[in-house]
Nucleic acid binder design. Structure first.
Length: 449
RNA sequence: UCCGCAGUAGCUCAAUGGUAGAGCAUUCGGCUGUUAACCGAAGGGUUGUAGGUUCGAGCCCUACCUGCGGAGCCA
């Protein structure tokens, strides 16, 4: 026999969400939320209520309510928990277009010392208070856009015939190198590593399902302290059997365009809060410029000759952040740089049959200095070549035996890419740093909260 | 790991080597349309830590700690 608790009863009392107010004009409603801010003017109070779906200004007139109600609301601090009853009224003076004329209210919890004020704060303070910083309007807008980016990715791939087939988080060995892996103690003295890519597993599932993707957290123990880096980030990785580099270019272009269109359509309010120029997102439509590595190098060398770049760039190297920014600065939409030197790319990349020093890989560089949002390409199909690559890169061969089976049993051309969700979200939002594009960022010097 | 910058009230920041300051937040008071409201008052400090120079250090010097920005590496 289950006894119904008072708190459960309270939780199921019907109430209206602030983003639904337009459907309740001139009706009495109950709102449940938290005090976002309060202004007052003698015998009139303007509490702003926040409920997760939006913020609405309420109006309390001293002469129109019970004296006890006036007293209970008068001195409330930011983030006091509140249930408010009142009538919805359209009013052009109100920030959201609607106001609530309060008739009754219940103070669920009174708060007086909320640390985050409406004034400015520093990065360290805000990150230390990330658990409550999430409530502020700007952070709320960013994470709503992240949600839309994730949904757009899933909808796009699902509607395109891809099957979600997630890769493991614990892995026995590196897929691209060992220096950037977080190690954990597994059983019986064995080491497990946190995944840095689902890539190799995707190749297995692609051979089983044709078109697949994995979508989950990824870990890199890189000692990077820049606005583009997290130690834990989310990555979506599609992989297609019987596909080539060209298919990857087309898929990248279609997916990024779809994401931008969805953000524009579904998150107009949030973009406004962030003061993000919609024109930047409207520009993200196919076709994206395609740039051969050779031509990118020429571009960098010309830039250096004109004094626009400090460092000299030699053919054969990988681009640094200033190089990427310089290249992407020539375009108002993402640029796809392809055919990198095989030397600087992962061991499993296929090589260009006409120029074996080149890999059939692509980096998609976002405009405005957001850097590489997508990296991918065509995978090598030859068993002998991969065995040789594993030896050259001094990788433990026993850890890759299962992977080599994929080249023994029905090896076909296949290709795919990985996209970083936080970089993509930060780009859509036009924000400075990827740390705001994930609820609880993990960085080199930040593990808390 | 390397290079650069910073650390003063709960927060954001001031303070020529010479008495530790303001705004916001908090508490109290005022105001019937406020838009990060406004006006008045009060409380609030081991100037990151340890040493050194000096008659005197928030300020100068050394080391360390913490954070920020960047490089390399990467999505």
């Amino acid at each position: 026999m289950v006894t119904e608790s008072p708190s459960l009863k309270q939780a199921i009392t019907p109430h209206v969400y602030i983003n639904q107010l337009s459907a309740h004009v001139d009706q009495e409603v109950t709102l449940k939320g938290w005090l976002y801010n309060m202004r007052s003017s003698g015998k009139i109070l303007f509490p702003q209520l926040r409920d997760g779906s939006g913020v609405v200004q309420c109006v309390v007139l001293k002469n129109a309510v019970q004296p006890e109600l006036w007293e209970s609301l008068k001195g409330l601090g930011q983030e006091s928990a509140l249930i408010i009853e009142g009538k919805v009224r359209a009013d052009s003076r109100a920030p959201g277009g609607y106001e609530i004329d309060v008739t009754n209210a219940q103070v669920v919890q009174e708060v007086h010392d909320y640390p985050i004020t409406p004034k400015e704060h520093g990065t360290e303070f805000l990150l230390d208070h990330r658990h409550i910083w999430l409530r502020s309007r700007r952070q709320h807008a960013i994470l709503k856009i992240r949600h839309t980016v994730v949904r757009a990715v899933r909808d796009f791939l699902d509607n395109d015939g891809f099957t979600l087939c997630d890769a493991p988080i614990f892995t026995p060995a590196a897929c691209e190198g060992t220096t950037t892996l977080f190690a954990a103690d597994y059983f019986d003295g064995e080491k497990a590593y946190l995944t840095q890519s689902g890539q190799l597993y995707n190749e297995a599932t692609a051979a089983a399902f044709g078109k697949v993707y994995c979508f989950g957290p990824t870990f890199r123990a890189e000692k990077s302290k820049t606005r583009r880096h997290l130690t834990e980030f989310w990555m979506v990785e599609p992989e297609m059997a019987y596909a080539t580099l060209d298919d990857v270019l087309t898929l990248s272009e279609r997916m990024l365009s779809y994401i931008a269109a969805r953000v524009l359509a579904d998150r107009a309010e949030e973009l406004k809060v962030l003061e993000r120029d919609p024109a930047k997102l409207e520009a993200i439509v196919p076709p994206f410029p395609r740039l051969h590595y050779d031509d990118a190098v020429k571009m960098l060398q010309e830039g250096r000759a004109k004094g626009l770049l400090e460092a000299r760039f030699e053919w054969g190297g990988d681009f640094g952040a200033p190089d990427e920014t310089f290249i992407s600065g020539h375009f108002d939409k993402p640029v796809m740089v392809h055919h990198y030197p095989a030397e600087v790319k992962a061991f499993y990349m296929a090589r260009d049959p006409d120029r074996s020093e080149l890999a059939l890989g692509v980096d998609v560089l976002a405009p405005e200095g957001y850097g590489e949002v997508i990296g991918g390409g065509e995978r090598a199909t030859s068993l002998e070549y991969l065995q040789q690559q594993i030896a050259t890169h001094e990788l433990p061969p026993e850890a890759f035996e299962w992977y080599l089976d994929l080249r023994r049993y029905g090896s076909v051309p296949h290709a795919g890419f990985g996209m970083g969700i936080e970089r993509c979200t930060a780009w859509m939002c036009g924000i400075e740093h990827v740390r705001e594009a994930i609820p609880f960022p993990r960085m080199m010097y930040r593990l808390r909260p």
